[in-house]
């Protein structure tokens, strides 16, 4: 049963994540006054990539990619998707956050094993940037967990039951802003896409990936996007009463992300860290201390 359910949710996440990516491309095109690709473009791209021939730079190059996708799928199973709780009852917020790090480690290992300095620089930037955005995000979560006296995502979602005014976005407005900003960092949206930077370091970690390796990474990114936006939806937008509402909320959050990302230009990597450690950090502390002292209504 667990196996079947996890296969289904994985397929859902992959399909929806790829849809989100196509959606992103379409919205970006409209913002730039273009017609844009069809919304299913990302599916075609992925199929094509898996059909191409590939080269490998060694065992870790393969294993890292598998580890990246595997870690992300594992994270997915611990996250509530609407009212679909695969394993989310036995999950914990820290487990989810740190399992995502496995995926990053896998991807980092694989990319560096391609022995291309562009990839190493990209990974260096990705990790440095992570040091920037994770801290304010975790600070907000500390305040939230302390206030609701729980670290289980399911209970945090349950704590927001009872309509819009109980959503954490309303209860913790500053925290929601911080979480939204850090979510952009997690997703690598502009202006926090320093580690991809195609014109600068030849798409960074992706430089040596082609064919199915790139396909795997796109699938991984799709699932990762689903998990990260889903986490935001669960923690700040009250989750979803059913899967449909949950998916709609994910789409809405991502829509705003794409719009914001489209009008901003890329930061340098130390600017990313400085930025996150300045305003989001201050806001995160203000919000967390405020809610820890005052509590929720």
């Amino acid at each position: 049963m667990l196996i079947v359910e996890s296969i289904l949710i994985t397929l859902l996440a992959i399909a929806y994540g790829l849809f989100l990516m196509g959606f992103d491309r379409k919205i970006t095109a409209r913002v730039q006054k273009r017609y844009g690709p069809p919304i299913w473009q990302q599916y075609i791209d992925t199929i094509k990539l898996f059909a191409k021939s590939t080269i490998s730079h060694g065992f870790i190059f393969d294993m890292g990619v598998i580890m990246a996708l595997g870690g992300t799928i594992a994270t997915l199973l611990f996250m509530p998707v609407g009212d679909w709780k695969v394993l989310s009852m036995s999950g914990d917020l820290f487990v989810v956050i740190y399992l995502l790090a496995v995926a990053l480690l896998g991807m980092a290992m694989s990319a560096v094993n391609s022995a291309n300095p562009n990839a190493s620089i990209g990974i260096m930037r990705a990790l440095t940037q992570m040091l920037g955005y994770e801290i304010p995000w975790l600070v907000v979560l500390v305040g939230m967990m302390y206030t609701f006296k729980t670290s289980s995502i399911w209970n945090l979602v349950g704590g927001q039951a009872g309509g819009f005014s109980n959503w954490n976005m309303v209860r913790m407005p500053l925290g929601a802003i911080v979480a939204f900003t850090t979510l952009m960092g997690q997703l690598g949206k502009k202006p926090f896409d320093t580690f991809i930077a195609p014109a600068e370091i030849a798409s960074g970690p992706m430089v040596e990936y082609g064919g199915k390796y790139m396909g795997m990474l796109i699938v991984q990114h799709a699932v990762g996007m689903f998990v990260e936006i889903g986490l935001f939806v669960n923690l700040f937008l009250g989750g979803g009463a059913n899967i449909g509402i949950f998916l709609l909320k994910v789409l809405a959050v991502y829509f705003v992300q794409v719009l914001v990302g489209n009008v901003l230009s890329r930061f340098r990597v130390e600017q990313v860290v400085r930025f996150h450690w300045k305003w989001p950090m201050v806001l995160a502390f203000v919000q967390s201390i405020w809610i820890m002292v005052v509590g929720v209504r």
């Binding site: 273009r34 844009g36 690709p37 473009q41 075609i44 992706m206 040596e208 790139m214």
Partner: peptide, 22 residues
Amino acid sequence: MTSRFDMERFGIGPMATPRQAD
């Protein structure tokens, strides 16, 4: 590539390295 002719609507896009390109 840009808004006037927009080749992305045919699924054509630029890539950075030969490994990724068709």
